[in-house]
Amino acid sequence: MHELPQTLVSGLALGALYGLIAIGYTMVYGIVQLINFAHGEIVMIGGFGALTIRLWLPGSVPLGAALPLMLLGGALTSVAVATAAERFAYRPLRGAPRLAPLITAIGLSIALQQIVWAFYPDAKKSRSFPQFGGDAFEITGNIHIQRDDLFVLIAAPLCMLALGFFVAKSRTGRAMQATAQDPDTARLMGVNTDRIIVLAFAIGGAFAAVAAVAQGLRAGQINFEMGFILGLKAFTAAVLGGIGNIYGAMLGGVVLGIAETASTTYIQDIPGMQQLGGGGWKDVWAFVLLIVVLLVRPQGLLGERVADRA
């Protein structure tokens, strides 16, 4: 198992990114049982929001200084779109059969993609995103971390801790837990479940922006289509970890990230499978992982936390 430490580190960075997005999915699903199909596009929009801030700032401002503003800008855009989606697209369909909000989500996802494609300057191809670049940090002889990966390796745990603290210790956080377990009773206890739901969307949106910036830094570019496959993988991660479970979402993300990175490194060494190990196959292996998890442990690694609607 050559390069295992490097694989783990690279996979961790990728996985943290997935985890941040997965949290958005899992929070919403845990409370309203809706797969927010458009969440991937919320990530994408956060990325474009951050890029806009960067372009608006004078070029002389170093990336490190601009980054907090970019995050803020990205988060504002994502949160705005996410909460607007909740208010105008999803809320009117609260009582409807499950197909209705899902189709709405699909429509919203397509519409958001197209809005950026059509109206954001030059978005028909990818737009380049600033990177830190430079030499990778060397931890030991074998392990290198790209500077651009550092961001997500720092940001994701911070976000997780903040969220964990918020949910466990604060009054609103407890209200969220209550709503996730039994919305009707929570309402009877005086919890404004509508606001809690908006909050879930908003937090998801904020994390999505962080993930978008992370993705932009890693890849050096963002494009209007990036949300689709990111979203798909992130939901896989959420299922992997246990839908509705915030820690599960991050764990699932990390597992997925490491598995994906490992697949590009190791599969080609397995006799007979050389041709299935290249970069073009990593998505396929991620999907296979999803199927395997569903077969073997459908409630996910850390167990589901979904309100019982029976």
């Binding site: 499950r98 798909l232 939901f235 896989t236 041709q275 998505d283």
Partner: peptide
């Protein structure tokens, strides 16, 4: 039922990627 939605969505993508890869170079 929601899991079926995601799995089928994934399958749709994976199908396209796989047949695109099976050209002898990236795959059999």
């Amino acid at each position: 039922g929601d899991y079926l939605a995601i799995v089928t969505l994934g399958f749709g993508e994976i199908f396209r990627i796989t047949v695109g890869n099976l050209n002898g170079e990236s795959g059999p």
